[in-house]
Computed example of a mutant assay.
Amino acid sequence: MSKVAGTAGTLLTGDATGNAVRIDKKIVTTLTNLDTDVLTTKAVSAVTSAIDTKATNAGTAASTAQTAANTAQTTANGKMAKVAASASAQIIVASATGDASASGKKIGGATLAATPSVSTLATEAAVAAALTWQTLG
């Protein structure tokens, strides 16, 4: 094959007789040799599409999370709050806003206690037993 002058970095091919022929195309080794307008349009289109997809997916996930939070809040709004375990056996009262709290008062038994307490409410049975004439024995 014979040498072809001025062919550094260009592609060569052979003709029908076997002689080297220069092709007017260069081997691209850096992006600076590409058609940047076409590359930029394609790259921007691909990136924009990917961003749009990610944004749509993120928006859908956020919307789903917000819907779940709204549902949980609606459910929570219809229920009383729990009170501390230390309030065991106490009467639970509601405030004007609907919040539950322990009253510090307990319900008494069937008879009045030997030592009255301001924190125990008497039952009807205990009051009736206290007011009934009993035979002392």
Rank of each mutant, 00 (worst) to 15 (best):
V4K: 03
A8T: 04
G9V: 02
G14H: 09
D15V: 02
D15Q: 02
T17H: 08
A20E: 01
I23N: 10
D24Y: 10
L31H: 05
N33H: 12
N33E: 15
L34V: 12
T36F: 12
T36W: 07
V38C: 03
L39Q: 03
T40D: 13
T41V: 07
A43R: 07
S49W: 05
I51N: 12
I51K: 09
D52V: 14
K54C: 01
A55R: 10
A55D: 15
T56N: 12
T56E: 13
G59Q: 01
G59D: 03
T64I: 06
A69R: 00
A72I: 08
A72K: 10
Q73S: 13
N77Q: 09
K79T: 10
A84S: 13
A84H: 08
S86G: 04
S86D: 13
A89L: 10
A89P: 01
A89D: 12
Q90V: 00
I92G: 00
A94R: 08
G98M: 05
K105H: 03
K106L: 02
I107N: 04
G108N: 09
G109T: 15
A110E: 14
A113G: 11
A114P: 06
V118K: 14
S119I: 05
S119R: 08
T120Y: 02
T120C: 03
T123F: 00
V127I: 15
A128M: 04
A128P: 00
A130D: 06
L131D: 06
L131K: 07
L136M: 09
G137F: 02
